[in-house]
Simulated scan of single mutants.
Amino acid sequence: MRFWFVVFAFYGMASVSVQAMPAIRVSDDGEHFVLEGSGERFVVWGVNYDHNTAGELLDEYWIERWDEVVEDFSEIKQLGANCVRIHLQVGKFVEAPGRVNQAALDQLAELLKLAEREGLYLDITGLACYHKSNVPGWYDQQSEEERWKTQAFFWEAVASVCRDSPAVFCYDLMNEPILAGRQPETDWLGGELGGKFFVQRLTLDLAGRSRSDVAKAWVDQMVDAIRNHDDRHLITVGVIPWVFAFGGGKPLFYSPEVSERLDFVSVHFYPEKEQVAKAIIALKAYDIGKPLVVEEMFPMKCSERELVEFVRASKSIADGWISFYWGSTARQLRETEDATIAHAITASWLDQFKAMAEEMKSVRGK
């Protein structure tokens, strides 16, 4: 208990308190976002800043190469974005059970100050295990109960640093959590994509519990951890829209049983070629009377034109859209000596994203 008091008292004093930006809250009718004080509607138009062009994750280089982060935030602002989604690895913030990494928390405080200076809100996504090399062996060996305790510890530490910063848009409890199937699993992480593991299991064994019961218990424990130190900022969970992927079914985390303590809906949509209408239908399944943010989108499976069509068609449903920025401007991507088709697609999309910024931030359809 003494350790907790010292750690959180210290970071409470060190947390950012500059009030240059109005905080974001849910509107009184519960359906969209507004700025604290003025009540002006706020629409999210942002980017995932999950890794750089070399594939390095933010918390792997943000101390030694801070100047790169400063430059990237300036470039993101020039794109017309008002929000940056960052991804924090649990292994970079928790050194051992019950012991935080002070340097990482200090750097997070610096990032908050940078975001305030640039006028960019942060979607703080935590508990990442994207690079297996950064996942501590002891963490993988923990039981479900111990692992959840470590995850709650992570969120208590992060919330203690972030609680007073107006630049915090939200805490995203985990990127794309999944559960075990009918049979027990042996690995906490899901499949690999480009050398990264973006999907993580909350349990290896349902042990007779319903999926809703497990999801609700985990959400409640993580929310409690944050609310011990921050009763102000919004909380969400970014999910794979299985309703879209499987062509039916019901949302799990945004079901009535699980979503009660989540402030808004976050879903990740990559529309398929010639299936924009189908994606919109699936998106409507997540319109549950709370603000809704498309937290990931990119012309990965469809054309740029079709993604623009999806974004504009979702104006009456969504309250925000977050794409990607990987540390290179459209011009830099085009001038790369070994530029590929992927470089060209990304450069073109960044130009389109910038061109749509003012239009989308002024959306008033919902």
Rank of each mutant, 00 (worst) to 15 (best):
W155C: 03
V158F: 04
A159N: 09
S160W: 00
V161A: 04
D164P: 00
S165Y: 09
V168S: 08
V168D: 12
F169G: 01
C170W: 04
Y171C: 04
D172T: 14
D172N: 15
M174K: 07
N175P: 02
E176L: 06
I178F: 11
L179Q: 08
G181F: 08
Q183A: 12
P184N: 06
P184S: 07
P184H: 01
D187Q: 09
D187V: 07
G191Q: 14
E192L: 11
L193E: 13
G194N: 04
G194T: 00
G195P: 02
F198W: 15
V199A: 01
Q200E: 14
Q200H: 13
Q200K: 12
R201G: 04
R201A: 08
R201N: 03
L204Y: 04
L206K: 09
A207H: 11
A207N: 14
G208T: 01
R209H: 14
K216Q: 10
W218E: 13
D220H: 05
D220S: 14
Q221F: 00
Q221D: 08
M222G: 05
V223Q: 03
D224S: 13
I226R: 04
R227G: 02
R227A: 02
N228V: 01
H229R: 13
H229P: 02
D230M: 05
D231Y: 10
R232E: 14
R232D: 12
L234D: 12
